[in-house]
Simulated assay, not measured.
Amino acid sequence: MRSNLFSLEKMDGQERLREALEMRGFLVEKDGPFLALTSGSSKADLVDVKRLLNSLNIPIFWNDDRFQLLTNKFPVIMMKKITAYRGEEFPVSMEGYHFRWRAFVNRKHGLKVDALKLDPYISSFVKAVNQAGIPCLAGCDGHLKFAPNLQFSGVYSGAWFQVIKEQYLNDLELNYTWKVEYRGGSGSKLVACKGGDERWDTHKIYGDTLKMAYKLKDYADEIKSRKACSFKRNVQMKEEAEFYRVNGRFEELSEWMAKVSE
């Protein structure tokens, strides 16, 4: 997690507000004296930011789509109210083309998922995966009952994330083991794994997802560029990829992607 008590003490109110919104899954950037949502945001995110800030009675000045905190201080308790703001359930659906090689290759960017439709302790991670150009449909923080997970769009997205995870995220000290699994309606998902007698811990889940989210955001442009330069719609590459997918040889698919993208 980027923030700690020392760094928070050095932040002014506007910086704390930006940090809290980013932790809740909104993609926020500085725009002069204002804050603004980045291009990776969904259409609903701007409406939801306004609704969220208004519901918490946070004093904000709006200048079109940009906003500014009208106080120099922003207490940690208000940051926690933003980061823990409850998500809303929504249906996740996929079309058959999501599983095709052509769809994987053609998509240069991730999906624009509404931040407030995601669970609070995994929303930033879902947004970061999409920001890195890997289509991620949704995420669940498990509600301390089930394993936290992310749902990728098709098998190829999951296999590509496995490559990215091994090359960019394996040096992170995480509380749980996160593995890509290839089953379920979306084709692939990332799942947190714990010991048999261990209980799920919100702080540990949040710590893991934020560490991975921040790392992916730092390398998002590089990851998108690697994908665009490595995978093509030519017949030979399509046949190789489809061979692994159709025969359920997903680990080999990921290994093949790693070699192609070297």
Rank of each mutant, 00 (worst) to 15 (best):
residue 108 K to W: 04
residue 12 D to E: 10
residue 233 R to T: 15
residue 77 I to R: 03
residue 146 F to W: 07
residue 169 L to N: 07
residue 183 R to P: 01
residue 163 V to I: 08
residue 229 C to Y: 06
residue 100 R to Y: 12
residue 85 Y to S: 08
residue 50 K to C: 05
residue 211 K to Y: 03
residue 255 E to Y: 11
residue 84 A to L: 13
residue 111 L to P: 09
residue 30 K to L: 14
residue 218 D to V: 09
residue 139 G to Q: 01
residue 109 H to E: 08
residue 45 D to N: 13
residue 156 Y to D: 08
residue 144 L to Q: 03
residue 105 V to Y: 11
residue 108 K to S: 13
residue 148 P to Q: 07
residue 199 R to H: 08
residue 56 L to I: 02
residue 258 A to H: 11
residue 73 K to F: 14
residue 27 L to C: 10
residue 79 M to D: 04
residue 109 H to C: 08
residue 98 H to D: 13
residue 221 D to C: 02
residue 210 L to H: 11
residue 254 S to G: 13
residue 75 P to D: 03
residue 224 K to L: 04
residue 169 L to W: 00
residue 181 E to C: 04
residue 89 E to M: 12
residue 136 C to H: 08
residue 213 A to N: 04
residue 144 L to C: 01
residue 1 M to N: 01
residue 207 G to M: 07
residue 105 V to C: 14
residue 53 L to S: 02
residue 92 V to T: 04
residue 204 K to I: 07
residue 179 K to V: 04
residue 201 D to K: 13
residue 124 S to H: 03
residue 30 K to A: 06
residue 212 M to H: 06
residue 255 E to N: 06
residue 258 A to E: 07
residue 147 A to V: 10
residue 31 D to R: 14
residue 173 E to D: 15
residue 12 D to I: 01
residue 161 F to Q: 11
residue 139 G to I: 09
residue 7 S to G: 02
residue 86 R to M: 01
residue 51 R to L: 11
residue 220 A to F: 14
residue 144 L to D: 00
residue 259 K to S: 07
residue 49 V to P: 14
residue 238 K to H: 05
residue 205 I to A: 08
residue 21 L to T: 04
residue 179 K to T: 06
residue 137 L to T: 01
residue 193 C to H: 12
residue 219 Y to E: 15
residue 151 Q to D: 07
residue 242 E to N: 04
residue 244 Y to K: 13
residue 108 K to M: 15
residue 182 Y to F: 13
residue 221 D to W: 05
residue 164 I to R: 03
residue 6 F to L: 10
residue 118 L to M: 11
residue 243 F to M: 09
residue 201 D to W: 15
residue 6 F to Q: 15
residue 135 P to R: 10
residue 208 D to R: 14
residue 72 N to T: 11
residue 30 K to T: 07
residue 225 S to W: 07
residue 141 D to L: 12
residue 13 G to R: 01
residue 138 A to K: 07
residue 73 K to I: 10
residue 93 S to A: 15
residue 3 S to I: 02
residue 120 P to D: 04
residue 191 V to H: 02
residue 204 K to Q: 10
residue 101 W to L: 08
residue 101 W to N: 00
residue 175 N to S: 09
residue 109 H to D: 11
residue 82 I to A: 03
residue 198 E to P: 10
residue 115 A to K: 15
residue 36 A to R: 09
residue 102 R to F: 14
residue 184 G to T: 09
residue 227 K to V: 00
residue 84 A to Y: 05
residue 221 D to N: 09
residue 138 A to M: 02
residue 130 N to Q: 11
residue 259 K to Q: 04
residue 249 R to F: 09
residue 236 Q to D: 06
